[in-house]
Design a protein around this nucleic acid. Structure first.
Lengths: 209, 209
DNA sequence: GTTAGCATGTAAGGAGTTACATGATTTT
DNA sequence: AAAATCATGTAACTCCTTACATGCTAAC
């Protein structure tokens, strides 16, 4: 079975690979990682965790009093089965991986993805967007000013995303060439951002658990 | 009641205000108007049409043989009640109107919206996006290269959209000033696009029905 | 001591998709 | 005559949100 969606489950597993977390904290991290446009609700997250428990991908450990806080929490940790599922799914670079949500999630875990899989996902995503552009450009028939403007803006946005992907693919490719040519340790791409980076004025925000 | 979503229904009513259409054709136009990223399915459209029939917003007329084609179609036309509902909803410039889908739909029908309502929707949408930016910029704590890059790109995209809205607001404002000052007929904004327009190389596509 | 934020859940429902079904008409 | 496209629908299912419920703990 090609496994339909399961984006949320995979994102949770990806986060739990770094460290065990409880639901409340998971939600915060998921909102950072993906979404931030759409805040994930608890009504979505907690049932997902229950499902994952039943699937045997995660274990729950109830903490009563630990070092700093004596607040009761249910901490989830990933199981070997969960790790295996995550690895299998994240390696799957088929059409499901170039859809919006799915792509974002996979991209967020690219550090734990093989270089050739990264490449296939980036290229697949780009051709998916290219298809959209072709469709949009061939069917523009709006006489209305606002409709035209809306479509123009939408096309601009997708074109921008295609350029972003192209830059990333280029960065991946040169990084890979370096590795093959020099036998140097794979430092990976993105050591220098492909476009003008936002000046990092943000608060470091070093809150752990 | 503030009326939850009903984006699809409103979009259908908006299209039917121009001319009566059958389901198949409606889907095509809806995909142009909104979506084009997400193709609307018939499993969504036809039940919506049934609901709208029951609500009395539209009538159905079965055509058997007309001028060009003798193919059987069910053509829907908007009723006075439907027009009233559409007008009321489209004038409602509350928070529901600045959400992604809802905003796009309302924007697409801006030609049939009062200038002051347009302004409120554009400004509301912009401050909604501004909130997202503030949240995203204050919580950036990713050490991972790819996560950082993903968030940077997401922030860039929203910043771009904010600028787009700012230009549109400016265009609306000057258009309104002109109208007030000269007593000239309201030619509206967007007579010249605020940014570099895509060179219109698209096929005119004059397919009607 | 009360408010704000932490923490976990459930039930009902909204909005959509996919898969299934069927058949007419036009094009090749 | 076959294939593509037009045309309309239903049933099951997915995924998510909102509203409801509950209670603890930290800060003011």
């Amino acid at each position: 079975m090609p496994s339909k969606g399961a984006t949320l489950e995979l994102a949770v597993l990806g986060l739990l690979q770094e460290s065990p977390l409880h639901g409340y904290e998971l939600r915060k991290r998921l909102n950072l990682l993906l979404g931030w446009t759409r805040l994930l609700s608890y009504g979505s997250l907690y049932p997902a965790l229950k499902r994952m428990l039943r699937s045997g991908w995660i274990n729950e450990v109830t903490t009563v009093s630990s070092s700093v806080s004596r607040r009761q929490r249910i901490v989830y940790q990933i199981t070997p089965a969960g790790t295996e599922f995550f690895t299998t799914e994240i390696t799957e670079a088929g059409p499901a991986a170039w859809e919006d949500e799915s792509f974002n999630m996979r991209f967020a875990f690219f550090s734990r993805t093989d270089a050739n899989v990264r490449m296939r996902i980036l290229e697949g995503r780009r051709s998916r967007l290219q298809e959209r552009l072709d469709r949009a450009r061939s069917t523009r028939g709006g006489s209305d000013r606002y409709v035209t403007e809306l479509q123009r803006h939408a096309i601009d946005s997708v074109e921008r995303e295609v350029r972003w992907l192209t830059d990333l693919i280029e960065a991946e490719r040169t990084a890979q060439d370096r590795t093959v040519a020099d036998r140097a340790p794979d430092r990976g791409p993105l050591t220098s951002p492909p476009k003008t980076a936002v000046p990092n004025t943000a608060v470091p925000n070093t809150e752990i658990s």
